[in-house]
Design a protein around this nucleic acid. Structure first.
Length: 443
RNA sequence: CGGAGUGUAGCGCAGUCUGGUAGCGCACUACGUUCGGGACGUAGGGGUCGCAGGUUCAAAUCCUGCCACUCCGACCA
């Protein structure tokens, strides 16, 4: 992308209302624009990051055996009356009336709807297990939205729903998601620790929150230090292996880890004091097993091997990609701006032409830019006629992991500079070497 | 939902107390000089002062009502 033709509305000063660092940086970097309390437009740079997160989430969901669908944002109140949640859900549910005076709602979650889909088509235990997920916008009319997209009213959520014949099978479905989540967050460059969670209004008796440690986190969390060094399940993990997944989950739940609400002082203090971690955390995922809470009242049953109708055992599994954007910034930034993990960055590499209009730098940059594109990189070419200082500041602010800096000074020796955003290391190399350094994007 | 605030140009702010031609910095446009860490000069453009009433010769400023947004707390992916 040529910056001169892109839409990147950088702000030099953050708007006054933005308090936390991720919100300030997202506004400054031109990633989002607030349209209403807790409701945001996603501008090109923000959308790129959001899509990169979605891609990873999708890959790991698919790897674990989940199947993608897409359900609507608007739902019928009737469906929610079946489960009893239409009245149980408070003012957080945005209720809408259509022109025919039918009661509708903007979905805060999709258990009822996916259960309806399931019961319409699936009739036999032979079609289980099944896990359907979608990535869709949700709306919860929070009393007090805050912290930008971290706690918006409208937010993007990946929600998966598992269907199984009995509790043992549902446990395995839970373990699949548990494992997929460990992989997802690791690929996003985050250390997310599963913590026992309260099951809340959704109900059920097996639930974990995945918490990212960050000093600006919203809640207090406690855990054993060893979690930070646990190994992420491998890409070739066999998701069909009941024992294999159970071993992973057992390991990742073997030590103490709890949010404030579930905190048990005695258990925590039993941890050797040098292994106690008390920190702030951001919830980035939440998984539940809730049995037949919805399948029972909604009649989602299958015929078992014995010919009997059995309500299916369900679980639901959420990750908030829009919130993850903010969490990633909270976990990765410095005075200069955002520091994205390589896999999430909106662009892989930025080419900075320090003197646009100069025949030498123009030619070198064109060469670099086209070569990077040809090798599959998302490259951003700053071809504007801004001054060098501004270009450095912009590149740092938006957090592109690599910068290739091309100025007339270096070019007299045939050299360009490669800068790593994260550590700030820079290296002066011949133009050819820079071209070679970026060999091609590994799939 | 309790408490505290804020609405003036795209962003950051002054002006409001004490009514009298709507300002500053950044950003934007043109030209010139600059050019390796957010340059400088000159000349420009841009605002129903959140909205609606009211008081007054005159309202960003005073009065009344409403709306929006933010922060702290309780609650949530």
């Amino acid at each position: 992308m040529r910056l001169s033709r892109y839409f990147l509305p950088i702000l030099r000063d953050a708007p006054r209302e933005a308090e936390i660092v991720s919100h300030r940086l997202m506004l400054r970097a031109g990633m989002i624009r607030q349209q209403s309390a807790g409701i945001y437009s996603w501008l090109p740079l923000g959308l790129r990051v959001l899509e990169k997160i979605n891609r990873i989430v999708r890959e790991e969901q698919n790897r674990s055996g989940a199947i993608e669908i897409l359900m609507p944002t608007i739902q019928s109140a009737d469906l929610w009356r079946e489960s009893g949640r239409y009245d149980a859900y408070g003012k957080e549910m945005l209720r809408i009336t259509d022109r025919n005076k039918r009661e509708m709602l903007y979905g805060p979650t999709n258990e009822e709807m996916v259960t309806d889909i399931f019961r319409s088509y699936v009739k036999s235990y032979k079609d289980l297990p099944l896990n359907l997920y979608h990535i869709q916008w949700k709306f919860r009319d929070e009393r007090r939205p805050r912290f930008g997209v971290m706690r918006g009213r409208e937010f993007l959520m990946k929600d998966a729903y598992s269907f199984d014949i009995d509790q043992a099978a549902a446990r395995h479905a839970y373990n699949r998601m548990f494992t997929a989540y460990l992989r997802t967050f690791a690929r996003l460059g985050l250390k997310a620790i599963p913590m026992r969670a309260d099951t809340g209004p959704i109900g059920g008796d097996l639930s974990h929150e995945f918490i990212v440690l960050a000093s600006t986190g919203e809640s207090q969390v406690f855990c054993h230090k060893d979690y930070l060094d646990f190994e992420t399940p491998a890409a070739d993990t066999d998701f069909d292996s009941v024992e294999g997944l159970q071993a992973i989950v057992d390991k990742w739940t073997s030590l103490y880890a709890a949010t404030d609400e579930m905190h048990d002082k005695a258990s925590y203090e039993a941890i050797p004091s040098d292994a106690q971690v008390s920190a702030r955390g951001i919830e980035v995922g939440h998984i539940f097993y809730f049995g037949t809470k919805y399948s029972d009242p909604m009649g989602a049953t299958v015929t078992g091997p014995d010919g009997a109708q059995t309500p299916v055992h369900m679980g639901s599994y959420g990750i908030g990609p829009s919130r993850l954007v903010a969490a990633l910034i909270e976990a990765g930034h410095d005075d200069g701006g955002i520091v994205w993990p390589d896999e999430i960055a909106p662009f892989d590499v930025a080419v900075l032409n320090l003197k646009a209009g100069d025949a030498g730098t123009d030619a070198a940059c064109e060469n670099l830019y086209k070569s990077l594109l040809a090798k599959g990189y998302d490259a951003l070419y700053d071809d504007t006629d801004e001054r060098p200082g501004g270009k450095f500041a912009t590149a740092d602010l938006i957090g592109v992991p690599w910068q290739i800096i091309v100025g007339p000074k270096g070019l007299t020796d045939g050299k360009v500079e490669i800068k790593r955003r994260a550590g700030g290391e820079r290296e002066s190399v011949p133009l050819e070497a820079a071209l070679e350094r970026f060999k091609g994007k590994a799939a």
